Lab assay of single mutants.
Amino acid sequence: MTYKLISNGKTLKGETTTEAVDAATAEKVFKQYANDNGVDGEWTYDDATKTFTVTE
C-alpha cells in the first residue's frame, strides 16, 4: 500500500510517499525520514487516507 507523509516542519515542508506492508512499517520509514531531515514534532495518522502528518 502507498502511505503519505505531510511534513509541516520549521525547515522542511512538503509531502512524500512510501510503499509499505502496513502503517507501522510506513511510520518507521517516515520517522527515520523526518529524523534525517531534522524534523521533530507531533505526529498524527489518518487511516482513511493512509496519511501521516508531522507538525513542528
Rank of each mutant, 00 (worst) to 15 (best):
M1C: 14
M1N: 14
T2P: 05
T2N: 06
T2Q: 09
Y3L: 02
Y3R: 00
K4S: 06
K4L: 09
K4A: 05
K4V: 12
L5Q: 02
L5F: 08
I6L: 08
I6M: 07
I6S: 04
S7G: 06
S7L: 15
S7M: 15
N8D: 09
N8W: 13
N8A: 09
N8Y: 14
G9E: 04
K10Y: 10
T11N: 12
T11I: 13
L12Q: 08
L12P: 05
L12V: 10
L12D: 05
K13G: 07
G14F: 15
G14N: 11
E15K: 07
E15T: 12
E15F: 11
T16G: 04
T16E: 06
T17W: 14
T18N: 03
T18V: 14
E19N: 13
A20M: 03
A20D: 02
V21G: 09
V21S: 12
D22T: 06
A23S: 09
A23Y: 12
A24K: 10
A24P: 08
A24S: 10
A24L: 09
T25I: 07
T25L: 06
T25Q: 12
A26C: 01
A26F: 00
E27M: 14
E27Q: 09
E27R: 06
E27C: 14
K28G: 07
V29Q: 07
F30Q: 00
F30S: 00
F30I: 01
K31I: 06
Q32Y: 04
Y33P: 00
A34E: 01
A34G: 03
N35S: 15
D36P: 01
D36E: 13
D36I: 10
N37A: 10
N37V: 09
N37S: 07
N37L: 13
G38Y: 06
G41Q: 03
E42L: 13
E42W: 12
W43I: 03
W43P: 00
W43A: 00
T44A: 10
Y45G: 00
Y45A: 00
Y45C: 02
A48K: 11
A48V: 11
A48W: 07
T49I: 06
K50R: 14
T51H: 02
T51D: 00
T51G: 01
V54F: 14
V54S: 01
T55I: 11
E56Q: 10
E56M: 08
E56L: 10
